[in-house]
Design a protein around this nucleic acid. Structure first.
Length: 287
DNA sequence: CTGGGGAGGGGGCCC
DNA sequence: GGGGCCCCCTCCCCA
């Protein structure tokens, strides 16, 4: 399932304004966990309370920090728009502004969103033939058969894992939506919202250049740009990369196959972004 | 205009 | 519930 389909939004998400967030970070205190890195990481003190039932969150609009809203919907599934009104609240996350629509071309769409798999799953190969760890991680049990999805019969090792999975079938069956005050995105769980809020508060700060990041591991990756560390090496040409995703993209250059093809001129591209740019420059002029 | 690297965003899963 | 790690994806830049 495309990650974009896991969250609703009222508008295209934009990159947070680092400048506007600077003042918030200054008010935060340091986090010892991230202090061990080059930068500092502050737990977002504006995060919501641990329980939605807390009457007064420790933040408010006057402190210019995030907040959640709890719509009083007895059956929130209606608010999801699966069968109910509020179509303006159910628009899927689309391409960013200025970006050619490319949803049907995304890698994610080449994968069946919800596979019905046997209890003992065979290796799942992605479009490039590599083991698709995303699908495996989503449902592969260590002790198959302990818990099974009533919808697709996927086995799950833990009840928690099954519960999370079943939200894909019945999102927000009776619970409230958690809405980010910054961008109005809605999330099914408080934890997901907390994670999202970090993308606004950017609590992890590089001590070298002052740049802020939402998560410590993003900061770690950034620190490699200062240290020059490149732990990921291409097995074909021994070229090293600081980021695993970039190595993966590089491996496509060795694959010799171009997965993305222009529907008009049939020209193939190794990356979706190249195809999108190809469309933007006029091969496939839109209406 | 294309190919590719660098850097980063963001959500999911496991522990 | 949080941290770590995974993944896909995007933008920017340069050759």
């Amino acid at each position: 399932m495309p990650r974009s389909f896991l969250v609703k939004t009222h508008s295209s998400h934009r990159v947070p304004n680092y400048g506007q967030l600077e003042t918030q970070r200054e008010a935060n205190s340091s986090c010892s966990a991230c202090e061990e890195l080059v930068g500092s990481c502050h737990p977002p003190d504006e995060e919501p309370p641990s329980t939605p039932s807390d009457p007064l969150p420790p933040w408010d609009s006057t402190s210019a920090v995030a907040c959640i809203s709890l719509p009083l919907l007895p059956h929130h599934g209606e608010a999801l728009g699966a069968s109910g009104p509020e179509p303006q609240k159910t628009s899927w996350v689309g391409p960013r502004a200025g970006q050619a629509p490319s949803v049907p071309l995304k890698d994610s769409f080449t994968l069946p969103p919800l596979l019905v798999l046997p209890t003992r799953w065979p290796p799942i190969l992605g479009p490039d033939g590599a083991l698709d760890k995303r699908l495996r991680a989503e449902g592969t049990p260590r002790a198959p058969g302990s818990f099974e999805c009533i919808h697709c019969h996927r086995p799950y090792h833990t009840l928690a894992g099954l519960a999370r999975h079943q939200q894909l079938h019945c999102p927000l069956p009776a619970g409230p939506a958690f809405t980010c005050r910054y961008c109005d995105k809605e999330y099914a769980s408080l934890g997901a919202l907390k994670m999202h809020i970090r993308t606004h508060t950017l609590p992890c700060i590089c001590k070298v250049c002052g740049k802020a990041f939402s998560r410590p591991w993003l900061l770690q990756g950034h620190i490699r740009t200062h240290t020059g560390e490149k732990p990921y090496t291409c097995p074909h040409c021994s070229r090293a990369f600081a980021d695993r995703s970039n190595l993966r993209a590089h491996l496509q250059t060795h694959a010799g196959t171009k997965k993305y093809r222009c529907p008009i001129c049939s020209k193939a591209f190794s990356r979706m972004s190249l195809l999108a740019r190809h469309e933007e420059v006029g091969c496939c002029p839109g209406p």
